[in-house]
Design a protein around this nucleic acid. Structure first.
Length: 564
RNA sequence: CGGGGCGUGGCUCAGUCCGGUUAGAGCGCACGGUUCGGGACCGUGAGGUCGGCGGUUCAAAUCCGCCCGCCCCGACCA
């Protein structure tokens, strides 16, 4: 496609509203335009990338027997009331004002409504149906460009099986397909076990791309491949040892000492001698004391999962009301009406110091086995960088990551809610066993840019590049250059290449080079007067910056080699 | 929803504190000319209800109130 007759709105100035690389580059390279918070238009180049990604997805989904469907985004709210997910989604779901309808944030309900009428027998299964469609979610805070939008393109597939073994098989097929899809899209990714959360079901895994711009945090082992979301990750950090001697509880005066670091300094003891106290409210009514070792960080998701409840940090007024002291002087000794839980590292430890529930006082020689009435030890701490891997002992890395895919074994939750039954071999009525498997299409594009860019712009992998070749005619007012460029353009497209041709005659060479680097096609073919006078053109590899001068007659050979 | 920031030509911003010619700059755009291998230059020109509504005032981009929108941090995130 030619620049002069196309819509390729690049911009050199930094967009003020974008902060992360992929967002900045998608705007500058003219892939997207914002319309409202979390809502983007996809312009020609951006759409081409999305289409490349979708094509890869389709090929791999079809390869595991998936069948593409196209489902309504507009759903009767009644359908969602049947599964109780109107409440589950709450404000996340968009509601239509002048009809009892909602905009679908996902499509389990619609799939079931179809399946219940047509999958009546075990002989009708297994089935895999997938869609690549816009989903709507009223995110409280859209952010990071296309990474968290209110309207986004998602590949969702749904497996329907008549047995649990069948579900395992469908799930494994998807896991395999996902690895191929993300690899083909040129992404470096890893897979983590995840909790199935409100989707319910028996198992789930997330496909993650490491990125400073990611919203998730994962612990990954560089040696054995252990990887887990910090919401579930564990490390091999040892529990606290018991020390000899039976020392009595003693109150110590600690004026104005509130933080663990201040205590370490004031008492001149290691942080591992301190039991940090955090206070939460469970379901808004039960006060919870959480004890952690020294400066171990509490992971609130782990706490919520351990308690099986909603939790929130206690407000300062509540802390005083329930404990009689302020944050910084709290501890397990003498605390009444609290549910007390502790991190596993504290199990049966002794010789510890914690707050006295009296401002400016702490208590020493606390023995968890002797002095503390505990409601349980749980894994509550967040894994930190460089802690030993549970699998192999290697130092763990803790990284931010973008979730690009998530696969769930749903089981029978939706089928039961929507009365989606079939008859098994014995003629018994059973709920269909489902799985659901999502991929964020925009997230693949943004992740790819996050992983593949430099200070000049995007560096596309050939597999999803909007064009393979960026052809530059340097001085298009020079008749020789114009003619040669046009000929090369025709030659390349005649040979099946996707070419973007900068045929503008009103910008300078430097301007074109900058645009080419920004747009990031894998190969740049540069046609200028000097090389042309020797019958040559220049080919630049965007990723390496490496240039070579080749004879015009040899272009096709050279390009073929460089692209594969 | 809490905290912070911002809203002035297509883009990036100045001007707002301390009200007062005809609201500016750079980039982009149009026309003419010179350039032509790393975001060229000269000249001419078009383009703005200063986010919206209301108020104060002789006078509002500027002060006050309400509202809307966008970005960032947090909460939230099947």
């Amino acid at each position: 496609m030619k620049f002069t007759t196309s819509f390729f709105p690049t911009q050199k100035e930094l967009p003020v509203d974008a902060t992360i690389p992929s967002h900045v580059l998608m705007l500058r390279a003219g892939l997207i335009r914002p319309l409202a918070a979390g809502v983007y238009s996809h312009l020609p180049i951006g759409l081409r990338v999305m289409q490349k990604v979708m094509q890869i997805i389709r090929e791999e989904m079809n390869a595991i027997g998936g069948q593409e469907v196209f489902l309504p985004a507009l759903n009767p709210i009644e359908l969602w009331q049947e599964t109780g997910r109107v409440e589950d989604f709450g404000d996340i779901m968009f509601h239509v004002k002048n009809r009892p309808m909602v905009l679908a944030p996902t499509h389990e309900e619609v799939i079931c409504s179809i399946a219940k009428n047509f999958l009546r027998s075990y002989r009708d299964m297994p089935q895999i149906w997938y869609q690549i469609q816009t989903k709507f979610r009223n995110e409280p805070r859209p952010r990071s460009g296309v990474l968290r939008g209110r309207q986004f393109l998602m590949k969702d597939s749904y497996s329907m099986d008549s047995s649990w073994e069948g579900l395992d098989e469908s799930y494994d097929k998807h896991a395999g397909a996902y690895k191929k899809i993300f690899s083909r899209c040129g992404l470096k990714f890893f897979i983590v076990g995840a909790s199935s959360g409100a989707m319910g079901g028996s198992g789930s895994q997330e496909f993650m791309v490491e990125s400073a711009s990611g919203e998730d945090t994962c612990a990954v082992c560089p040696k054995c491949g252990y990887a887990a979301n910090v919401e579930v990750a564990v490390s091999n950090i040892p529990p606290l040892p018991r020390t000899d001697g039976e020392l009595k509880l003693e109150e110590i005066h600690t004026p104005k000492v509130r933080t663990i670091d201040e205590l370490v300094e004031f008492l001149n003891v290691p942080a591992e001698k301190l039991a940090k106290s955090l206070v939460y409210m469970q379901n808004n009514k039960i006060p919870i004391l959480v004890l952690m070792v020294g400066n171990d960080q509490l992971n609130e998701t782990k706490l919520a999962n351990a308690l099986g409840a909603n939790i929130r940090p206690m407000h300062p007024e509540e802390i005083v009301q329930f404990t009689g002291a302020h944050s910084g002087s709290l501890g397990p000794i003498g605390l009444k009406n609290f549910k007390i839980v502790a991190d596993k590292r504290l199990k049966d430890a002794n010789g510890l110091i914690s707050g006295a529930n009296k401002d400016d006082y702490h208590i020493e020689n606390i023995d968890f086995a002797r002095d503390v009435r505990l409601d349980g030890y749980y894994d509550l701490r967040e894994v930190k960088e460089n802690e030993p891997c549970v699998e192999c002992g290697e130092q763990l890395r803790v990284v931010n990551a973008i979730e690009i895919g998530h696969i769930f074994k749903l089981g029978t939750k939706y089928a039961e809610g929507l009365k989606t039954y079939f008859l098994n071999e014995k003629g018994e009525e059973k709920p269909i066993i489902m799985g659901s498997y999502g991929i964020g299409v925009e997230r693949i594009v943004a992740s790819h840019i996050e992983q593949n860019h430099d200070e000049n712009g995007i560096i596309w992998d050939t597999s999803i590049a909007p064009f393979q070749i960026h052809l530059i005619g340097l001085n298009m007012k020079n008749e020789t250059v114009r003619e040669a460029s046009e000929n090369v353009y025709q030659l390349l497209i005649a040979n099946g290449y996707e070419v973007i041709f900068d045929d503008r005659d009103d910008v300078t060479a430097g301007f074109k080079f900058k645009d080419a680097d920004l747009l990031g096609m894998p190969l740049h073919v540069i046609i200028g007067e000097k090389n042309l006078s020797d019958g040559n053109v220049e080919i630049k590899i965007r990723r390496t910056g490496k240039r070579s001068v080749v004879a015009i007659d040899d272009i096709l050979n050279k390009i073929e080699k460089l692209l594969h």
